[in-house]
């Protein structure tokens, strides 16, 4: 990845340098400019499905985790219009599943929750609460799967396929019924292991994939996003 940074473009008026083939988000990250994202994580292939990384490129909305950087692009990221799009996307994720932060052991480590904090989501919304009935799979001795909290980002799917070479997780169903399933009757039937990348704490952004027995090792209030706004690590990078 040591290709020379020969391209320049701007995000919100700030000049960013990029190497050919880099996405807008990769170039922004390296320049210390954070673009919110949920389905994209370093080390896995880009999917561009959550759309929280939506930016405007030359006036059109696109997902910055999949859009390649190009010379002289004009990217808008922190404008009120784009921020409102992101807020609505995150709100819809909250309303679509059963996201009960007070009872969730991922609270404080949850990227969905942290994104809502970052986007200042506090006020009443126009969306109805769907309150779907979804399954809880506690069959495996080390791992539980509470799909009430799943946002279908597909990070576990890509980690299991591409990193672990197993394909334990996969999408099932279509449209609004699309969900993440496992390749067996339940988790205990699969060849999943607690050491898999798909089960690693950083892979699931929410509290859907649960590692049993460690949930409250760090108390509520002292967790990652209790102490830091999501994206602050990227924004803190050297800015030249």
């Amino acid at each position: 990845m040591s290709t020379a940074k020969t391209l320049t473009f701007t995000i919100d008026g700030k000049t960013i340098q990029a190497a050919p083939g880099q996405t807008i988000m990769q170039a922004a990250d390296e320049a210390g400019f954070y673009i919110p994202r949920l389905c994209d994580i370093e080390g896995l292939r880009h999917q561009g499905s959550c759309r929280v990384c939506t930016v405007k490129v030359n006036g059109r909305t696109t997902s910055s985790c999949t859009q390649p950087a190009e010379q002289d692009q004009i990217v808008e990221s922190e404008t009120e219009e784009v921020l409102n799009l992101r807020r609505d996307l995150v709100r819809m994720l909250f309303h679509e599943g059963n996201h009960l932060c007070p009872i969730c052991e991922a609270s404080g480590n949850c990227e969905l929750q942290a994104m809502a904090y970052r986007l200042n989501i506090t006020q009443p919304t126009k969306f109805p609460y769907q309150q779907p009935v979804r399954s809880l799979d506690a069959s495996h001795p080390d791992i539980a799967l509470d799909t009430n909290r799943c946002i279908r980002c597909g990070r576990c799917i890509r980690a299991s396929q591409d990193v672990d070479g197993k394909g334990v997780f996969g999408y099932v169903g279509r449209g609004v019924h699309r969900s993440v399933g496992v390749n067996g009757d339940n988790l205990a039937d699969t060849n999943v292991d607690i050491t898999d990348k798909a089960i690693a704490p950083e892979t699931c952004p929410v509290g859907c994939i649960i590692r049993k027995g460690v949930g409250f090792t760090v108390p509520i209030g002292e967790r990652e996003f209790d102490l830091m706004i999501i994206g602050a690590d990227i924004e803190g990078k050297s800015d030249d």
Partner: peptide
């Protein structure tokens, strides 16, 4: 609306969707 229960139903809302 003060608190998660007033905002989105909170803990009691767990009775709305039982597997």
């Amino acid at each position: 609306a003060v608190g998660q229960c007033a905002i989105m139903g909170g803990l009691p809302v767990m009775r709305n969707a039982i597997m």
